[in-house]
Structures are given as structure tokens and as C-alpha cells.
Design a protein around this nucleic acid. Structure first.
Lengths: 157, 157
DNA sequence: TTACGTGCAAAGGCTTTGCAGTCGG
DNA sequence: CCGACTGCAAAGCCTTTGCACGTAA
């Protein structure tokens, strides 16, 4: 979750990223950047498209995919694949890399982070002479909300 | 990586799984089970299809997908999605749950496991009142082999 | 015998690509 | 002005589904 200022700063960085490569700064690109970078969750392309429509902006699906890809390449956005058959995107925060709790009931995603985790991964990579770039950690299960919605005592798949 | 005996035992378990549900034990299902359960890597459907062809067996793509799904449901096989646009499958070993080192250069996957990791995840889930079922851990980067193949000192994307 | 499996081909869901028209710098 | 973008539609890729025929038990 970015503050309003952080979010604006990231839009600005994206704008600079485009200018540095002499790429046109178009209305569509900026609108998509603003919408995605102001998101406090992990929207899919579909969700993003809907948010843009809610803002009264229509952006072609192809442009949307292309712009989100540019945002990922510019380093302002992270792409995730939680194995749902589509990707989700998330603004990059200034905080450290984090992991996800994924609820298989409601599909909700909660974040958590842990310094020890990162250290452990770097060590493990070293042990295998593996050059560490990034990690992906997900814990799958059922979130607190869905658990309490279930009848007490009725567990299992 | 399963031993030959373990692999055979798992085929046997799959056969029993089918019989228990009065599902026909067909030539295709057994061949697919044998081939996947004898695999020492994380084959995709496409790779699996090729391995079957190399054994001189043709299995329809639909049957292949359906059988692999049955193997996953029977608990003999794990499905992975490394964000490549397709799934990979892996025979379930008797060893503890493990994580993956994924090389972005050659696509190779190495396994590792760590008890502390599992304990840490259970604790983290607890902290969020999240019901822990399973986790997924991947470290992405470049494997030892690809690193040594690169010119020494020539790093970067 | 009979329910379920099998294989082909068609359809589906997400994403990418081709191309004519448009616009930023 | 020119190169890159945009939007639509078509194509691509992996996976699932529909259906006529075949087969395990």
C-alpha cells in the first residue's frame, strides 16, 4: 500500500523512464500508471480494466497489457502469478520484498515480510552456487475471515 | 527423484486409487502414471507427451491432461506453476516438502528443503489467524552451470 | 452389458500480434 | 513531420469440453 505521495512519485518516475527512452508519454500510459500505482491490492488486467472504466476511461486491452508490461520493466510494478490462470500486478513499495498469504476460498491475498526469510534464501542460494535475484514465497490456505465464516468445527476441503 | 521401487509403489497406489472409486484402470492411465512417476524432473504436459511418444505410446492430449489431473488428485503427483504460462508436474516423494531454485537462463529447476522454513511459515500463518495448508517457495536467479557458461565478469540481464 | 474412458476437434480464457489510423515531441 | 502508439480484430498458447466410439470389469 503506497501513500498518495509515493504513488505520485512513481507515476513521475515512469514518466521519466519513458522520456529517457524517447518514448511518447501518452494519456493512456499515464492513466494506467496512475490507476495501477494507486491500487492497494494485487489487481489483474481485468480488474484494472474495470477500474479504468469506473474512472470513465476506456483503454484498449492490448494497450493495457503493453503499458503494464512497460510498468514492470520500468521497475514501478511487480508481476505475480498465483497459479490462477492469469497474472496479478502490484505497485513496488519502498519496503522490503514481501511474501503472500493466498486464501484458496476467497482468493484474497495478504502480505507479510520477514527479514530472516530473505537472509535464509541468500544463504541457500549461495550453498548451491546459485546467483540470487529474487524470491517468491506464498503460503496457501484459508484466511481468518473465511475460517470464521465456516461453521465452527467443520474443517477440511 | 524416486527410486525405481518407490516409483512402482506409487503406480500401484494410483491403481488402487482408481479401483477404490470403481474407475477403469486403462492402459493409457497406467502408462501415463508410469512415465510421470518415473520422471526425475518437473516435466510439462508437452514434455510428458514427448516421453510417451519416445516409449512408442500415443495418448490423446485430452486424456493426458485428464490423467495427470487424476494423479494430482490421488496425491501421487504435485502440480507447479512457475509462471511460464504452463504447468509442470512432479512425483510426490516421501521426503518433506521442498522449495525450488529456478534458473531464468536455462529454465532448470533444482530442489532444496529446509526445516526452519516450514516452521517459520506455520508460525507466520498462525500470526495472521491463517489456516496453513501448503507453501510455495521459489528462488529465482541463475544456476551455477549458466553462471560458469557466462564470460567471467559479464553480469547483468 | 454398461458405465466410464478415449481421441479428435472445437471451444475457452488469457495474452500477444498485425495493421490502419492517430498523436506526441 | 516521423516514429511510436492506439485500438480493434485476429491469432497464439495452454487447457478444457463435447461427442461418437471403444473398452474395462
Amino acid at each position: 500500500m503506497l501513500t498518495r505521495d509515493e504513488s505520485n512519485a512513481r507515476v513521475e518516475r515512469f514518466r521519466r523512464y519513458l522520456k529517457d527512452r524517447r518514448l511518447p508519454v501518452t494519456r493512456q500510459r499515464i492513466t494506467v500508471a496512475e490507476t495501477l500505482l494507486a491500487s492497494e491490492d494485487h489487481p489483474s488486467i481485468e480488474v484494472l480494466r474495470r477500474r479504468l472504466l469506473d474512472r470513465g476511461v476506456h483503454v484498449g486491452l492490448a494497450t493495457l497489457y503493453r503499458t503494464v508490461e512497460a510498468l514492470v520493466e520500468s521497475g514501478q510494478v511487480l508481476a505475480h502469478d498465483f497459479g490462477e490462470g492469469f497474472k496479478r500486478y502490484e505497485p513496488v513499495g519502498d519496503r522490503r520484498e514481501h511474501a503472500h498469504l493466498v486464501c484458496r476460498r476467497c482468493g484474497g491475498v495478504t502480505e507479510f515480510s520477514n527479514d530472516r526469510l530473505e537472509r535464509m534464501f541468500r544463504m541457500t542460494a549461495d550453498e548451491h552456487q546459485f546467483y540470487y535475484e529474487r524470491h517468491r514465497v506464498e503460503i496457501h490456505g484459508i484466511c481468518a475471515e473465511c475460517r470464521s465464516r465456516d461453521l465452527p468445527g467443520a474443517g477440511g476441503r
